[in-house]
Amino acid sequence: MAKKKGSLVHKEIYQRINFLYQAAHQALTTSPSDLSLCRFYIKTLRAITQRQVLRLHPYMKRSICKKCCVLLVPGITMSVRIKANGEKYSEITCLDCGKKCKFLNRKNYQPWFENPEAWMTV
């Protein structure tokens, strides 16, 4: 599924997504007790990607809470625990709403997006 080489189609929208992601980070660091602004920026970011049918990078997608749209930073808004119930997995919990997420820790498993073939050159 390697993409074609060529110019970036939605360059301005990607720039906007990048800006909103950074702004959310800044809002979180300036006032860690108040999450409202961080939430608002992530919510608009998601709305843009949904309307335009763009896909976020998996690492970016995993750093956003599915339920309450908060940026997940380990220790401040989320906790990570390694658990084993047959197979080992890491459990991510959003400290604000309590939403849980599981990611398997399999040996010798490489996700597709970490494969160099998946990357597009611009």
Binding site: A23, A27, T30, S36, L37
Partner: peptide, 22 residues
């Protein structure tokens, strides 16, 4: 009331770095 900004955080200087980013 998820998106409401608290009263203590309504300070102009706090949001100057956001303006620089913009």
């Amino acid at each position: 009331k998820i998106f409401d900004i608290k009263k203590e955080d309504q300070k102009y200087e706090k949001y100057l770095p956001l303006h620089n980013l913009w």
